[in-house]
């Protein structure tokens, strides 16, 4: 296993939790990512925004190698996870992911959805995993739904379950891929509320979204992507009030 800096062990307080270097991704003939570099530190809440087709979802999916990068390097907790020899499954356990389409397992109850992975992968006892799951369910106000099946839930409930399912693995970072885009408008709030709570607890988060107001409120850092590249990175204030590039100005004019 390669380390970003072999001389020095990974220090979670000073070294970036995730370090992306010159990331490339080609789909047959299409340059989806064209040299993306970004450091994400512990406790960062990074929002990735940009026009559709800008590569932001591809970027997020490359972080846990659901999408296999065509080039460049990604270091997670000091380990180069783009190295083929690395056991990516180990590292994915520490990177929770939430999808636009929820992707709950329809053949399992809410509780089983949440406890399956911790029981099988972290060898936690069933009782312990269920106690942990109930704690999380209580936090998102869905304790009474533990025996429900996913298609008995509303979209907002499904997404809240998907978030706590990922949290059950006690991840070091949470990746959100347009978590509210498939929701009815009246259900967006309840999901954002859960994410806001996570941000307040200093969970490291990378969020791809179109919710600009939410980004302004919660983000510690906003990344603007277009044409497979990062054009601008800054705090919400810099991003919304002092955009530097013409491209971002145009984008903000359209979405605000």
């Amino acid at each position: 296993m390669k380390n970003s800096n072999p001389e020095k062990p990974f220090n979670p307080e000073t070294d970036p939790l995730i370090s992306v270097k010159d990331l490339q991704k080609n789909f047959k003939g299409l340059h989806a990512l064209n040299g993306v570099s970004l450091d994400i530190y512990k406790g960062d809440v990074v929002f990735v925004v940009g026009p559709s087709g800008s590569g932001k979802s591809t970027f997020l999916r490359c972080l846990n190698r659901l999408e296999e990068p065509s080039g460049g390097e990604i270091f997670f907790e000091g380990v180069e996870i783009t190295d083929r020899a690395v056991d990516i499954n180990k590292h994915r356990q520490k990177m929770g992911m939430v999808f636009q389409q929820f992707n709950l397992f329809p053949h399992m109850t809410v509780l089983k959805n949440m406890t399956q992975a911790p029981i099988k992968l972290q060898h936690i006892s069933k009782a312990e995993a269920e106690a942990e799951a109930r704690k999380l369910l209580d936090r998102v106000g869905l304790l009474d739904r533990e025996n429900a099946y996913p298609n008995q839930l509303s979209g907002g409930q499904k997404q809240r379950i998907a978030i706590v399912r990922a949290l059950c693995m006690k991840p070091d970072v949470m990746l959100f891929d347009e978590p509210t885009s498939a929701l009815d408008p009246e259900m967006v709030g309840e999901v954002l509320q859960v994410m806001r709570g996570l941000a307040e607890e200093k969970m490291t988060m990378v969020v791809v979204t179109h919710e600009m107001a939410f980004a302004r409120e919660v983000a510690s850092k906003i990344v603007f992507m277009a044409d497979g590249q990062i054009l601008e990175t800054g705090t919400p204030d810099e991003f919304f009030n002092h955009p530097k590039t013409e491209r971002l100005k145009q984008f903000l004019d359209k979405v605000l």
């Binding site: 846990n64 659901l66 499954n89 180990k90 994915r92 356990q93 990177m95 929770g96 992911m97 999808f99 389409q101 992707n103 709950l104 397992f105 399956q116 992975a117 099988k120 992968l121 399912r165 990922a166 693995m169």
Partner: peptide, 18 residues
């Protein structure tokens, strides 16, 4: 089966066989 099911499983850390 929806590809998302597969991705959700892999993103939790399950390997292909699991």
């Amino acid at each position: 089966i929806d590809q998302g099911q597969f991705e959700a499983g892999r993103s939790l850390g399950f390997n292909f066989a699991q």
